[in-house]
Design a protein around this nucleic acid. Structure first.
Lengths: 119, 119
DNA sequence: CCAATTGTTCAATAACTTTTGAACTAAGGA
DNA sequence: TCCTTAGTTCAAAAGTTATTGAACAATTGG
């Protein structure tokens, strides 16, 4: 079972910007960037909204090509599509993440440590 | 008579991204960037929509702090707030403009030459 | 098998955004 | 003064996005 993702060349700039222009989704991306290399499941983001609401926002991010979601058991392991985004829009993700990193107004994924994920 | 603009420190990242996440507004910004130094009035953008519609989009850009509008006679001279944006979100505008510059899917401000503007 | 965990889907609603035309203001030129 | 040009404002309509809870599916562990 795999989830639908756009190819790198199908990623659209206005779409990516629109999707990042939501504080909840920007907070998700900032957190993913801060944990790059670590695959996170949806529950890590429950600080930012209800389960249903996160499912919605994570689907938006995935459909826009910002994140990749891999199905591992009952988990969806979520990662930033950094290479694809960097290839398509050089420097964009870095500057967004740097700017978001300083933004006190953005919602925060709580200081709770990451849970070890089971395969 | 002056129009309301946010201060540099009031410019919000999610807001800027959301505002740039509209193809019409992104096309406006791309065109402004391509004519940097030249002050443009609203009529230059009529390729992108009706007068009323442009008034709406240009107000969004201005209220988000992306553009500055100066009243000169009956014209509003529009410029990118490059220095403010670069200070607040280093590299962001450049990467957006570079990415937009290659984007064939974005609407285009026609090849018509700029009209000399009257004070 | 049963229960718990993880996450999705659906339908409803609320809230916002975009687009439109008609009416308007304000400045400039004849 | 009157006309034109530049742009705004308003209200309506249309479309889109975000949020919610209830019901569902799939996997895993006991």
């Amino acid at each position: 079972m795999t989830l639908p993702h756009p190819n790198a060349d199908q990623i659209s700039l206005p779409n990516v910007l629109a999707v990042l222009g939501d504080p909840t989704r920007l907070a998700i991306v900032r957190y993913l960037a801060s944990k790059e290399g670590v695959a996170l499941n949806c529950s890590q983001f429950l600080d930012l909204g209800s389960k249903t609401n996160l499912s919605y926002h994570l689907a938006k991010l995935r459909e826009a090509g910002v994140t990749r979601a891999e199905v591992v058991g009952t988990n969806r392991m979520i990662t930033l599509r950094r290479a694809d985004l960097d290839a398509r829009f050089p420097g964009l993700l870095d500057s967004v993440i740097a700017a978001a990193g300083e933004d006190k107004a953005l919602p925060m994924v709580g200081g709770a440590d990451e849970i070890e994920i089971q395969a």
